[in-house]
Write a protein that binds this DNA or RNA. Structure first.
Lengths: 201, 201
DNA sequence: GCTTATACATACATAACTGAATGTATATTT
DNA sequence: AAATATACATTCAGTTATGTATGTATAAGC
């Protein structure tokens, strides 16, 4: 078989990632073999080993295809809202993505129920952890700024409140993934968020 | 090698479950082989296949050893508290167990980060789901009862509030498992719980 | 005290996944 | 237009997990 053009090669790479995503979602990561992925993408294992170092590398690439855009998204410096409203907007956008973008929801479900975090995937877990810390710090900043601006004192230290807020959202996403017919994630998420904020004052 | 007495057989079974628990926790479920478990327990795979049907069966037994006692625990009809205080007590007790009982924390971490929920483990996922639904219903009942007794109306429908409460707790546990040095689970859990309740009034 | 089921240990057959090595036709480069 | 690197396909060697079948010494049952 011939050498492919650069475009074709990139297309192959995408097909491989798509196939991995589907099969990981259906069967779990560890029960999915590189051969299955290759076949589903219409190639052979040779193609996988050309584009990726091994299964863990392929998994990482699949994750980053979704998480990198999500992390850089959400910021909109044009509309200068109050800090908490900005946070709320980002939150709503994220929740909407989880429920409406099938790729996002699939990858989230893979990350939370279809993979085992062992040594060779430590990188993913570390990224998850720093992402959480960033989210918490952002919450915390917004809470501090709002409290100062409005001259009120919160019933919890901002750090703790930020932690709980993150847990609330993360827990809702997890629950929604477990049974996505049960409730409307965006609506309940925003209601929960606002109710907790009311309790803080 | 001889046949063992019933006591010895039961001890073997426990050692197998202990070994599985440790190895699952260290390496993840799918990368842990039955041979490793048997060796760590000082026996052979024959013993595993005698006591359990296969790896999934062993995993289920390992889970139930911790989850069954937890589900039946917590109830204390002697002290008749207000419904919400009863809920709070159960919550504190559960969080305390997660942080202080190493077996509970290990099994929780296995269940949330070290196993892939595919078809053959559907039973575990289903149990998880019904456990969640039970917890939500309990929250909901308590909220309704309290609202009626005190004649106040909540800012969210009880069903939604219960969902959010559960997500808050589940999210906190998940966050704590991810990095258990970061915060005091029992303390933050109770603070978050109470703050959200304040927001509901 | 004899029988039998028990609680494993051992051995085997099979299937399968991985990583690396090698082959190759053709885009690309110069 | 020749040389080279690319984008895979193919093959192979090696390892290893699983399920099952079978062996066996003894605790239990009668």
């Amino acid at each position: 078989m011939p050498r492919r053009t650069k475009q074709e090669a990139l297309a192959t790479r995408h097909r491989l990632l798509d196939s991995a995503e589907m099969l990981f979602h259906q069967q779990g990561v560890s029960k999915t073999t590189l051969q299955q992925i290759a076949e589903h993408a219409g190639t052979t294992r040779g193609a996988i080993y050309w584009h990726f170092k091994d299964k863990a590398d392929l998994f990482n690439a699949m994750m980053e295809r979704v998480t990198l855009p999500m992390e850089s998204a959400g910021r909109d410096p044009g509309a200068n809202l109050a800090p908490l409203e900005e946070v709320e907007r980002g939150l709503a956008e994220a929740l909407r993505l989880v429920t409406e973008d099938p790729q996002v929801s699939r990858v989230f479900e893979i990350a939370s129920h279809k993979v085992e975090y062992t040594e060779e995937l430590r990188a993913v877990r570390d990224r998850h952890l720093t992402a959480r810390n960033n989210a918490c710090m952002e919450f915390e900043q917004a809470l501090r700024a709002t409290a100062e601006r409005e001259g009120l004192r919160l019933s919890l230290p901002p750090e703790t409140a930020a932690l709980v807020l993150h847990a609330l959202v993360a827990g809702l996403i997890q629950d929604w993934l477990l049974d996505n017919r049960k409730f409307n994630l965006v609506k309940v998420g925003l209601q929960g968020f606002r109710t907790f904020l009311r309790g803080l004052r």
